[in-house]
Design a protein around this nucleic acid. Structure first.
Lengths: 72, 72, 72, 72
DNA sequence: GTGGTCTAGACCACG
DNA sequence: GTGGTCTAGACCACA
């Protein structure tokens, strides 16, 4: 029985936080290290989740600073 | 008529803040850039003031972080 | 698709200015602060770019004075 | 009295380990995280040390794997 | 007021 | 979980 990959569930989780307003445009997401610890996943899972959210325009990564919720 | 050099007056000023408790042990001093602006002096003056306070044991510079009031 | 690092692009830019004669031997490069502002990058990127140009012999940094185009 | 920069002392240390045979060609160096912890320095210092050793041909970094002592 | 060193900690690319 | 890039901003050494 197929299960959603971990990165997809993590992406869904963060997307939900944005849609609910828990994370507002301009807010900084927890760092990748924090997300790893909070969700008990690996770097790759976090990166993949962030990546899809970036390509979908939900968040934007700024090198050396962090990942931020995009203005829409 | 001889006047105290600027760096000595600045050092006196900071030492006074420490002695009065305005700056407590472990507190971070304003950055060199801030001290320059606040007192209208050059880099050299600030550095010289910090230098004498360091050699006298009042403060301690930590590379990349800042200058801190020493424990006594 | 591979992207060149910022420091490499900056180094290429400066090297190009030297090869084109826009910057002649003995000329002073813009200061690190100016380069940061002009290219919208951080200290590290500028330093890294200057560093490789120094090791390749294109420029020479003189402490307290500036960075200069080397004689070749 | 001139003090060597931290990155240079670290580079010297590693180069010494290679010359003494403590680190043989093909051996993997400690990870950057370990080097940071072992020597109590920041990322920049470790990277700078590795960088010069790479440019001098002592070691070779392989992305995603580690840094290895080069064959000579 | 310049170049040089350094910290803390972030994201990015790769295996 | 590694190496590599990057930010912001600090002190240090020199002229």
């Amino acid at each position: 029985m197929p299960v959603k990959p971990k990165w997809e569930r993590l992406a869904d989780h963060i997307r939900g936080q944005i849609e609910s307003g828990e994370l507002a445009p301009g807010d900084q997401l927890p760092s990748t290290v924090q997300l790893k610890a909070q969700h008990g996943v690996s770097t790759t899972v976090v990166r993949q989740a962030i990546l899809v959210l970036q390509t979908q325009g939900w968040v934007q990564g700024v090198h050396g600073l962090g990942v931020f919720v995009a203005d829409r």
